[in-house]
Design a protein around this nucleic acid. Structure first.
Lengths: 329, 329
DNA sequence: CTGTAATATGGAATCGATTCCATAATAATG
DNA sequence: CATTATTATGGAATCGATTCCATATTACAG
């Protein structure tokens, strides 16, 4: 691996001049420039980004912290982020917390030690310590999916989206609607979506049986189990179910089918997230399309603004969603 | 952001000593050690990885080049890679070629300039120029999914897997089997799978109509179109179809269903890749599970070996696959 | 009590770039 | 032709760590 010094020697100029050619800044005569470029070409020299960024304090790397790496949500988000960042010559340094909250802080520190130019965090739950750490970081930062006051956020309207779904079911005549949620520590998916459900029901003066509200985790098995609980634990069976993710909904569908009930005849069901599966499952699942690519793009743009601008007041970008009404309701 | 110099001053020691504490190497008295650690704690100091790696020539970063970022294949692969690397304290620098071949070379150079400790490349096609560049790189390197001689490879047995599927169909009595492939420039998915198909057919002395072999790209729409061509362009209609990816297969299924034929009654169909969709589509799709997570883990392990060992002879790790027989055949 | 080994610490060079400052050569201006 | 800009180039400091080498102190052996 050649260095700028070698190039300088070979081209019979100083390192300073080589640097000027590299960044084409300052004055360099055409002749010298040509000579230097020729040497660079011949040797296949590539300047060390490392040394460069030590001096310039810019790495052109953005840290991305994901709760889980191989989910459709994450990969669509990263796709959106990359779309915007790659264009501006930034690379993505990927970290995966695997849903372990302490890792978020660990990675935040790590990304700082690597001098990334900015951080995008897609978190599922936010504790005090994490928020503290973020404030201490003083690195351009964007939060996706959850809200932290005082910082740039890209959020989905979880509350309203859930209401739209519930209201649609109500409009279709359903009065007994069950709900499969997740832990409310996840403010967006857990708390806000549940709130949307409850408030919509209340506004329409519809009762909610306690057993109709179940809490799962983020997988199909859990949706299956929740559905089982809902149907087994009460005589009063709901005619519709809203699940806060498609996976939960699909798990629930499996149970419904398994016990011989029809969808949507006996029970209507809706999910959220517009996973690819939702379109192909039978019957196709009604869901909310949150466009994670848009969220990624938005987050990246916002981050670039912060990187260039430095204005650190709170910013909230709400990603629009679409209700995809399909045959499951 | 504090530096080692500041810590040294605050603790009234030299930078050398602080460095010793940081890496606990060399001799440091308990007393001084405590004092330094306390200052580090107080200031929240994190050493600059950047400066460190400039000196040590190690970045603890692995570059990963993907053909497409938001596909199930890629995200499963990255998941496997991350599983192994994270454990050893490595981070992933992600780059996405979006299937543009020149980008592979561009990113290879870029990753070198960033002094990554190694590179994992998941490529769809390999041209001479790319191979040249890889040889020139002289960075620990692992190729996934395609083979390059003389270097470490993690490959799938595309040929045999395809044969297994075709043979299964033949065993089930099918004699007229169609094939939806992709460009043979993609040696693994395009060339080898087609070869497997053709040879299996030949060995069983089964004829292949020219129109039964179609070439698509990597999406459902393309599978749909290919299926249409297969069924429309000849009187002699096949009773089974093998598609080289699940997406192509699912697209094909859509067309088959659309024209009112039944699966597998009128036409049996099989895909490859074991996408999540394949399990939930109706009827569930027979496919090959290539365990991309395993491939990722294997690639990462192999890379770590290379990073530590330096032995650069060719290595080939073939990831085992499972044939998932489901209702579509 | 002297000589060697072990322990403890710091100075200064180094990694590979950028960048400020100085200086030399050439061109433009009055 | 002297003076000032402009162009062209290099020297050396710098970024923030690590690490070789030197030196000082203490411990131990003969």
């Amino acid at each position: 691996m050649s260095t700028i010094k070698e190039i300088a020697e070979r081209a019979n100029v100083s390192r300073t001049t080589v640097s000027r050619v590299l960044n084409n800044s300052g004055y360099v005569s055409e002749e010298v420039k040509k000579r230097v470029l020729k040497v660079i070409e011949e040797t296949g020299y590539v300047p060390s980004e490392n040394a460069k960024s030590l001096r310039t304090k810019k790495t052109k790397v953005i840290g991305v912290i994901l709760p889980k790496i191989s989910t459709e949500t994450s990969s669509r988000l990263v796709n959106g982020i990359d779309e915007v960042l790659a264009e501006k010559g930034y690379q993505i340094l990927l970290t995966n917390t695997n849903l372990i909250p302490e890792k978020e802080i660990e990675f935040l520190r790590l990304l700082k030690s690597r001098h990334v130019d900015g951080v995008i965090l897609s978190a599922t739950n936010i504790n005090e310590q994490l928020v503290d750490e973020i404030y201490r970081l003083k690195i351009p930062f964007v939060m996706v999916g959850q809200r932290i006051s005082g910082l740039p956020n890209v959020v989905f309207d979880d509350y309203q989206a859930t209401r739209d779904i519930v209201n649609l079911l109500i409009k279709k005549g359903h009065k007994k609607i069950a709900f499969i949620g997740v832990d409310e520590k996840d403010h967006a998916v857990g708390y806000l979506r549940k709130l949307g459900f409850i408030e919509s029901m209340k506004e329409s003066h519809l009762p909610i049986e306690k057993s109709w509200i179940q809490k799962g985790i983020f997988d199909m098995k859990s949706g299956y189990n929740c559905m089982k609980l809902i149907l087994d634990s009460s005589q009063n069976k709901p005619t519709a179910v809203v699940a806060v993710t498609d996976r939960l909904a699909i798990g629930a569908m499996q149970y419904i089918k398994e016990i011989g009930l029809s969808i949507p005849g006996d029970i209507a069901i809706a999910g959220m997230g517009a996973s690819e599966l939702s379109k192909f499952i039978s019957p196709p699942l009604t869901t909310i399309d949150f466009s994670f690519e848009d969220a990624g793009r938005e987050a990246a743009s916002l981050l670039l603004e912060k990187i260039n601008g430095h204005d650190y007041h709170e910013t909230i970008r709400t990603i629009k969603y679409r209700l995809l009404e399909r045959d499951s309701i």
